[in-house]
Each structure stands twice: as C-alpha cells, then as structure tokens.
Design a protein around this nucleic acid. Structure first.
Length: 264
DNA sequence: AGGTTATGCCAAT
DNA sequence: TTGGCCTAACCTC
C-alpha cells in the first residue's frame, strides 16, 4: 500500500540484490507464469521507479512493469532453502540465497521498450527523480497553474505529479496552508513551486526512513504511526497547530483531510 | 469467524 | 461517480 517513496526503496532493494545477476522468476500463484517464463534466467539490468510505477529491465530488453496498487507488497527473504509459499504469491524472484515475493499487485506484466515509453510519457514529474536544475518542477507548475480543477485533485493526478498519494496530498496542503478545494489556477507560481519543493523534501524523508513522517519536529526520529502526520487520518481530532477539529470529506472517492482554520 | 479498512487506479455508467 | 480488482492487517464479536 505504497506511495512513491516505497516504490523507490523497492527499486533500490531489487538493484542491490539482483542487478547484473541472472534471476529465476516464477509465479507460485500461477497468474503470472506465462510472462515469468519470458524473463526467467535473464540478467536483471536495472530496476527503476517512476512515481508509483516500477520498471524492472532484463538483458533481453524485456521489462517487467509493476504497479502495487493499494494492496501490493514485496517481501524479501535470505535463506539457503527456498522459503515456503505463504498466501498468494504472484511472482517470486530468486538468485542464490535471496528471494523476493510479490503479492497483490494491480499490474504485473512483461512489456517491450515501446510500451515502457508509452507509460513513461503519460507520467508527470516525480519529486524523487528531480534533478538539481529543477527542470521537471516547471512541468508541474505549468499544469497546475492552468488547471481549473482543485489542487487536492491535482496532487493525486499522476499525470500532473507522480508518486504522491493520499497521505502526502493531505500533509503537503496542510504544511503549505492551502485549502484543498482551491483551483490550481488560483494559486501563485510561488505557492506551487513551494509545494513541489516540499514534496521533494517530504518524499526524501520517506524514501530514507520508509515512513511518511511529515511533522517537521519528528524528522530523524522514529515516531509511532499516529504521531507522524498533521491531519491524515485525524478527522475529528484537534489540529496540532490550532486545535480546530480536523475536517474530512470524500473527494473523488478518496478521503481528504484538512484543517479548515489553518488552510485558507 | 467475520467484517472493515487501506498509502490506487481503471472501466463502466 | 460507482464498482471492481485483490490481499493482508486490524478490528469486533
């Protein structure tokens, strides 16, 4: 159940364990067997994360594209014996003593390079792939500033910015003091640039720790889940800043959390 | 044991 | 906008 920072961590793990090595790929569950046979035994060239999408490229130029969706998870094992299959394992990677099990992905398919390019073309810039010159941030800013739709929706739109999900959406807007229903076009360029910069900052914390810690005072610590955020999943509880009861509503079928006093 | 929930997304309406 | 996908964890009874 990841936002983009987790997918980047998975790409790093996969590269650490398997890059440059021939990987045995199976599908204990059976749903992925046909595709698995096309890459099994090939050397894994590189795993790359873009937003919430994971691309695992093999030496025969085929790429395994994975999207974890809301349920998907990877689990890594190190063992001289093959670990028992527990539950529905869509795909298992193995090389030597390392095993990686994938469960519950929305997408798990082998595709060619053209198909990868088509997917990539649709994705907005990823804060975790930002280069130092901030060239990508301009794409994000331009799209937001000319859109009539709300910033709450825009931050969840992977064609606008990739890798942000429901937690970071709520927390970014709280930290910026922006009311989630504000149209993109009503924001200033400085506000949108600041949102981008903050997304880079927060997602780097997430990628480094594995946790979505968004309260400045808790950076570098290991807080309990219920302490990590300002407004996410805190409906009805007092705002950590002004004590106003945190608001909740459904926006495009997802729960939106915000403080009606701090975010105007 | 059964019900609810989730950091997501798409096709159908 | 709604339903469906698909899995495990975390409730409640």
């Amino acid at each position: 159940m990841p936002e983009g920072h987790i997918v980047h961590r998975i790409a790093d793990d996969l590269n650490g364990y398997f890059a440059g090595k021939p990987v045995t790929v199976t599908s204990p569950q059976g749903r992925f067997t046909q595709d698995a046979m096309t890459i099994s035994g090939q050397r894994l060239r590189l795993a790359t994360a873009v937003g919430k999408q994971l691309f695992i490229e093999f030496e025969n130029d085929l790429t395994l594209r994975i999207h974890l969706g809301i349920y998907g998870k990877w689990q890594f094992h190190q063992s001289s014996e093959s670990p028992a299959i527990v539950g529905e394992v869509r795909a298992r990677f193995s090389h030597g003593k390392v095993f990686a099990d994938l469960r519950g992905p929305t997408v798990c398919e082998v595709v060619d390079q053209d198909s990868v390019r088509m997917v990539l073309r649709k994705l907005g810039p990823d804060p975790l792939n930002a280069n130092p010159r901030q060239a990508e941030s301009r794409r994000f800013i331009n799209k937001v500033l000319k859109s009539q739709s709300s910033i709450g929706l825009l931050l969840m739109n992977q064609e606008v910015i990739s890798g942000i999900g429901n937690v970071y959406r709520a927390e970014l807007l709280f930290r910026a003091g922006i009311e989630p229903h504000t149209p993109g076009s009503a924001l200033s360029m400085e506000q949108v640039q600041a949102l981008w910069n903050d997304s880079v900052k927060l997602m780097r914390v997430g990628a480094k720790t594995g946790f979505m810690i968004t309260r400045e005072s808790l950076f570098g610590k290991n807080p309990r889940k219920e302490d990590r955020n300002y407004v996410y999943k805190r409906e009805g509880q007092p705002c950590r800043n002004c004590k106003t009861s945190v608001s909740i509503e459904l926006m495009a079928a997802r729960k939106l959390y915000w403080c009606s006093r701090c975010q105007k």
